[in-house]
Write a protein that binds this DNA or RNA. Structure first.
Length: 833
DNA sequence: TTGCGATCCCTTTTT
DNA sequence: GGGATCGCAA
């Protein structure tokens, strides 16, 4: 059977030997190389035409021009890493060292791949279209696997399962083993398999101990059963996209050799994030027999290694020189992004980490007007969102520099995605445009997954998971009993469920009603599969959704979401336009999973720190710098010291995203799992240097609100001045007002705003509070001064109620609360009972 | 077989 | 707090 992937010619788009020469017949030249072509001409003497090299600093230029032999570029944040990579590609093409199709350029994320493609496109023009080997590890893995699928026991039209499918599949296996799927959650086992795969381990490689850890010692068998099941489904998971090629290369040296000849240049972005499997994959492709050039260039930054939890091995970057003898190591330390304050803060913070290669970023751009990194305190996450929103509006109207700022230049970077919600809620009420990056994704929506299951099954009839998903959606009277029958029938004969369904309708094993319903479904699928070749995939998609009754199902649905779902389905069909075939579309979706339809809207970006890596913004807001959230408790529990260091790198990534302004927030109270918890400022705040940081909270407390303070003070000042509760609540303790505020805050916008203003004054008055922040941040001095409390004191806390002080450590109290148990709290938050 | 209510569990990060 | 799953009843 042919499909669109077989259409890609193998080696005939570029001769293996000799290396390309500049000639009219050269496909590369014919492709119209733009600058590259001009630069080829330049090779004959006119070096000035190599304009893409000008503007590089000496280190960058060296990294670009060192084309022979292995190169490791240690590129700090904002030092022009992507520029080096893209220019290097342009340079390879321009000097006619290789055809576009002979360059393997690997990135970690889709976003990075997209950006690289764009930027290379700017340099070399249309030639970038001739670079099929530029993409993520996974997308390149698919490409390899499609070509050699049979060597992995698959057909080239295999499906790629996402996490959801995998979990459902494993759940079936666990149940089939007669195990209790509550005691042995499928999700957990899916995680184990994933981490095994990240380490490059196949079932026989699993150590005895690990194998025993799950399902009464059946872990290894279960893993093997899972792999076997994938094979019968003609499917693979994300990990397989790397593992299968690895074993194909290992077992077929001749194939590996073909790729060695093909890939003249290998480039790897974000090398510090590669896991063991990726590393094995890469080494197979990059390590050549002695005497052959190993033109591999890896770019990375050990200080930005933030994927250790996912199996990334920082060691990979550290042992590069051992793996590739004679490697040249180039450090990029000149930062072009951030102000000296931001760099100073970030550098001081990251210096607290031990195992690092040690780079120090510097910049020449010193401007006395540059704002220091601002640290703000808020009572709770709601106030945090409110204040950030106001700061954003302030910048939008015209910041301290009087300049009006675009929302596109601002981002809120959170540690965990649940933090996003509060900002979204707030921005909706403010009418402030925002976009969530990496949030709940289009293709993960229920209706989209259903529709996709239909498409998958049409293209790949062995896809049982898709079959099970939609066989009774919309409702066709095919319930659990029928499905289970069908399932058993299929398993017994080792055939796909769709085929089994076809057979079983010819017997009388099913009740007439179910039999009829099933028969109709199969007929539909037969029809659709036939049309695959004759009807355009766009039309076919529409027909499938119509004829299956799927759109009717939502039209009949009276719930609030139904119209939105119908819209999404339309959007889905529309987005298929960009693809040549349904298969091509399905592949895109399984790998990319996000629809990048954020047009030119001016909007604040909200995303996690992880997904912010590689991006930059004029103004960056970093909320939630509290112990337990950031650094995240789980990272500390599971990762210990190295977990903490990874969190610190995450903080470093966050800070270094900012070009001009960086605002950090921490709150005293945050709701976690629905419960309010008192929180302490993050230790990372202690690690920021006073020279580059302003504690904005005290300033706004005293200066901003009384009306006499002048200063650029607080946010939304004028609005609060009008608020009438101001006067009469002025003298009551802050926490009380905050508490009163909380009850009506969710409903009443204005109420919450005025309450908010009042709250903040309360902070200003509560001396310990302000000093605490200064003390935490600037020096440990406060921590050394004796607390106003002593052990045994009876105290009251707004969230936890009454309790007794159990121990004191500087300004941090451990309190045994009568009802809430033992908590650690800053002394500013309690008062004598 | 379906639909609804109750309960349970989880909440870091992603290809 | 909230989403997903489970169990029970119609």
């Amino acid at each position: 059977m042919t499909n669109s992937f077989d259409d890609i010619p193998f080696f005939d788009d570029a001769p293996e030997e000799p290396a390309p020469r500049r000639s009219a017949a050269s496909p590369a030249a014919a492709a119209g190389l733009g600058i590259a072509a001009r630069a080829m001409a330049a090779r004959d003497g006119n070096r000035a035409a190599m304009e893409y090299l000008s503007g590089l600093n000496p280190e960058q230029r060296e990294a670009v021009e060192s084309l022979d032999g292995p190169v490791l570029v240690l590129a700090g944040a904002g030092t022009g890493k992507t520029r080096v990579l893209t220019t290097r590609i342009a340079h390879i093409l321009a000097t006619a060292r290789a055809y576009p199709s002979q360059i393997l350029a690997v990135t970690f994320t889709n976003k990075a791949a997209r950006e690289m493609k764009e930027r290379v496109g700017v340099l070399v023009g249309g030639a970038v279209e001739g670079m099929p080997w530029m993409g993520t590890f996974h997308s390149i893995g698919v490409k390899l696997l499609r070509r050699h699928a049979e060597l992995a026991g698959l057909r080239s039209d295999f499906s790629i399962l996402d996490t959801d499918d995998v979990v459902r599949l494993i759940k079936q296996l666990i149940q089939a083993e007669g195990l209790d799927d509550k005691r042995w959650p499928a999700k957990q086992f899916a995680g184990m398999i994933d981490s095994w795969k990240n380490k490059g381990l196949t079932p026989p490689d699993i150590a005895e101990g690990d194998a025993r850890a799950f399902a009464n010692g059946k872990g290894r068998e279960l893993y093997a059963a899972y792999q076997a099941r994938l094979r019968t489904l003609n499917a693979c998971d994300f990990g397989d996209l790397l593992l299968h090629p690895i074993s194909i290369f290992r077992q077929n040296p001749d194939i590996l050799k073909e790729y060695h000849q093909r890939f003249r240049y290998i480039l790897v972005d974000e090398y510090q994030d590669t896991n063991t499997a990726q590393y094995m994959w890469l080494r197979l492709l990059a390590q050549r027999p002695q005497g052959t050039p190993q033109n591999v260039c890896c770019v990375g930054d050990d200080d930005q290694s933030i994927y250790g939890w996912r199996g990334a091995e920082v060691d990979n970057i550290l042992r590069f020189e051992k793996d590739f003898v004679g490697a040249k190591v180039i450090k990029l330390e000149r930062n072009y992004r951030s102000t000296e304050h931001i760099l100073g803060a970030a550098g001081h913070l990251i210096a607290h980490n031990e195992g690092r290669l040690g780079k120090t970023l510097f910049t020449d751009r010193v401007d006395p007007d540059d704002e220091k990194v601002q640290v703000h305190a808020a009572w709770d996450s709601e106030e945090e969102a409110r204040a950030v929103g106001e700061e954003i509006e302030r910048l939008q109207r015209g910041g301290s520099d009087g300049k009006k700022h675009n929302l596109n230049d601002m981002a809120i970077l959170v540690r965990a995605s649940f933090q996003m919600r509060e900002f979204e809620d707030r921005f909706v009420t403010l009418g402030l445009n925002y976009r969530v990056i990496g949030g709940p994704r289009f293709y993960e929506r229920l209706e989209i997954r259903d529709a996709m299951a239909y498409f998958r099954l049409v293209c790949q009839p062995a896809d049982d998971l898709a079959f099970e998903r939609i066989v009774n959606t919309p409702k066709r009277g095919l319930g659990d009993t029928t499905i289970r029958n069908l399932h058993d029938y299929a398993r017994a004969r080792d055939i796909p469920m769709l085929a089994a369904a076809s057979q079983i309708t010819e017997t009388d094993e099913l009740k007439p009603k179910a039999r009829k319903a099933l028969f109709d479904v199969i007929q539909s699928f037969r029809n659709w599969s036939e049309r695959l070749e004759t009807v355009s995939h766009l039309e076919l998609a529409e027909q499938i959704l119509e004829e299956s009754g799927y759109t009717d199902m939502w039209k009949a649905d009276k719930s609030a979401e139904a119209p939105g779902r119908l819209d999404n389905l339309k959007e889905l069909v529309r987005s298929m336009e960009a693809f040549e075939s349904m298969r091509g579309f399905l592949e895109h979706v399984s790998l990319v999973m996000d629809a990048d339809k954020n047009e030119n809207l001016d909007a604040v970006s909200i995303m996690t720190l992880h997904s912010a890596k590689g991006l930059e913004f004029d103004t960056v807001f970093l909320p939630g710098w509290e112990e337990g959230l950031f650094p995240h408790q789980r990272a500390l529990d599971e990762g210990g010291r190295s977990g903490l260091e990874e969190e610190r790198r995450l903080a470093y990534v966050g800070l270094t995203r900012a070009k001009h302004r960086c605002h950090i927030w921490f709150v005293s109270n945050r709701r976690i799992h629905g419960l309010w918890q008192s929180t302490m400022p993050s230790r990372f705040l202690d690690e920021l240097p006073a020279a580059h940081v302003d504690v904005a909270v005290s300033e706004s407390n005293y200066g901003g609100y009384g009306g006499q303070g002048g200063g650029r003070g607080g946010y939304g000042q004028s609005r609060f001045d009008k608020a009438d509760p101001f006067a009469n609540t002025h003298s009551t303790p802050g926490w009380k007002r905050a508490q009163a505020n909380k009850s009506d805050a969710t409903r009443d916008n204005w109420g919450s705003r005025s309450g908010h203003a009042v709250e903040r004054i309360g902070y200003g008055e509560s001396g310990p509070r302000t000093r605490t922040i200064d003390g935490e941040l600037v020096a440990k001095s406060v921590a050394d001064t004796p607390s106003q409390f002593s052990v045994g004191d009876r105290v009251f806390h707004v969230k936890f109620g009454n309790g007794n002080v159990a121990s004191i450590e500087g300004n941090k109290l451990t309190i045994d609360f009568d009802r809430a148990g033992q908590k650690r709290v800053l002394d500013g938050f309690v008062e004598r009972a």
